[in-house]
Design a protein around this nucleic acid. Sequence first.
DNA 1: ACACGTAGAGAACTGGT
DNA 2: ACCAGCACTCTACGTGT
Length: 303
Amino acid sequence: MLNSFEKCAECGSREIEENTQGERSCVDCGLVLSGVVIDSGPEWRNYSDSGESGERVGMPSTELLHDKGLTTDIDWRNKDFAGITMNSQSSRIFRRLRRQHQRTRISNSKERNLSVALAELQRIASQMNLPKSVRERSAYIYRKAVELGLVRGRSIEGVVAASIYAACRMGNIPRTLDEVGAFSRTGRKEIGRTYREVSKALKLRVSPSSPSEYIPRFCSTLKLPHKTQSSAMKILSDAESRELTAGRGPTGIAAASVYLASLITKNPRTQKEVSEAAGITEVTIRNRYKELCVALEINPDDY
DNA sequence: ACACGTAGAGAACTGGT
DNA sequence: ACCAGCACTCTACGTGT
């Protein structure tokens, strides 16, 4: 996608491309211009047929409340629409209405379960400093688990912890089982076991994320030109077709491809630099790098 | 400074009992 | 349900250029 109104801050090129992750980068030098996608549109729809579009009414719905935030409340003040205090008879009626209304909000065991569980989820998530997107996702996973009857026979806590663990991994901010367990009353083993069952039952696509997703970001942090990036992608796809990538950490493969590409395109980066950009150790890069050289019959000295 | 190698520890998954 | 074995990565250290 090209945007002719914008120039690259690094090299002045007007060739800006946007990838599927929403990162916009310069085609010539690879500089990432904006990595954060801001959704400026309203999330909630306009239901009125005659009014202006874009009316904003109330808060957007959320997975984090058991009724998704779709609730009404009866004002606690005993005033009428004009702000005049009600008489005692009306006050009694409204007190009673409020109580009945509150009871209908949490009407059955499933909703009671959800409201307990989601409160627990919030507690753990905020102690772990998890972003909102991950909280929403884990709440969604938990709801699905309830619908499929996975909670019966297991502890609510365990399923909550498993949902969080899964959501973290899906959101690419993985936490270890121990880390999640530290904030929950359940242990690592139970979370792990529950997680496996939940992810199987929900067919969660927990990212065996492709290394290719990491390459643009690594190249950008290392200020590598576009040429090197496409070279790294080429190396990676060769490696994938030779099944070098199975079972390996995706970041390791991506980092090694970038490192190798940086050597053969004459924009060398040290293993240390690459390892810092990729968040892995030099050792892992070395191992993957060595495998790549052997399997693809590349000798960086030739370049 | 950097590249490269090795050993031991730890985390996560698998399969057997 | 639990344990042992596994493949992988990390830490830490040493060696060579």
